[in-house]
Simulated assay, not measured.
Amino acid sequence: MKQILKIGLDSAAPYPMHSDYNSAVFEGFEVDLIREIAALLNLEVHYEVSLWQNILEKLYKGELDMICSAVTMTTSREMILEFSHPYLQFQLCAVVNKNDELTGLQSFKNKKIGIRIATEAEKYVMAQFPYNATWHAETNQELYDKLIAGRIDVLIDDSPIADGFLKKNDSLAIGMFMPGTESQYAIAMKKGDVELKERINETIDLLKENGKYAEIHDKWFKQVKLVI
């Protein structure tokens, strides 16, 4: 019998990392990656879908084995979670309507900025633009809808996720990449779960060595600019 691996997924699907689990087609970069990892380790994957804050809490409590859902590696998170080797590099970016222009951080003066709750983008905006009006959303879709409707002037998001939304909304564009925000996604596990982390790391390394990782990466990001 295969060992069951319980994986948390953000219900606000960060496509193209992964689509909505309950949609007709469940797909994405992380879906392909986990499928390969599970096959090599002979694991059966069970997904649990909830809001970002909820799956984090369940991981802390040991109710999940891992989260593979656009989790940014940070120093503070590494104090309370185990992380696999990183599997994607990216940067925060500012998304605007195509008729708007950003020429640098000074362009954000007096702009209303949209950000998602409990994300690194939110932390960045609150530190970098403490005097700007901000709008905080539970989901990425809310942010993009507000930007299209003109209720906010700009939103800050992870570049892979921004690219997924831009492909569906040709009225939007990346105005600029935010300086000093180079980051990495990795699989998050409960603190102390070192054995699982080592197994996952060995498998990620193998996928990079045998070319499967590059195949998956190119399928989803070959023509996408994720960093400057």
Rank of each mutant, 00 (worst) to 15 (best):
Q184L: 08
Q3R: 15
Q53R: 14
R116N: 02
D10L: 10
A24N: 14
N210R: 11
Q128L: 04
A118R: 08
I152R: 09
A186F: 02
A137Q: 02
E36Y: 03
N97I: 12
E27R: 10
S23R: 03
E209H: 11
H217R: 07
K58N: 13
E48M: 14
L143P: 04
I4F: 01
D100R: 07
L41E: 15
N110H: 15
I148P: 01
K112N: 01
Y60F: 15
G8V: 05
E101K: 15
A186L: 01
F83D: 01
N110K: 12
Y213T: 08
N22D: 04
Q223R: 13
R151N: 08
K123N: 13
L40A: 10
K225D: 00
W220L: 00
I55T: 07
L206W: 06
A70I: 02
E138S: 15
S69F: 05
D145M: 10
M1D: 10
V71P: 01
G114W: 02
E209Q: 14
M66Y: 02
V49Q: 03
G180R: 04
Q106N: 15
Y131P: 00
R77I: 04
N97H: 11
V227N: 05
W52F: 13
E27G: 06
D170E: 15
Q106C: 07
L43E: 00
A214P: 00
W220H: 13
V224L: 03
A70L: 07
F165Y: 15
A70V: 10
A133L: 14
F26M: 09
L64T: 03
W220P: 00
G62D: 07
I228M: 14
K58I: 12
E138F: 12
I156C: 13
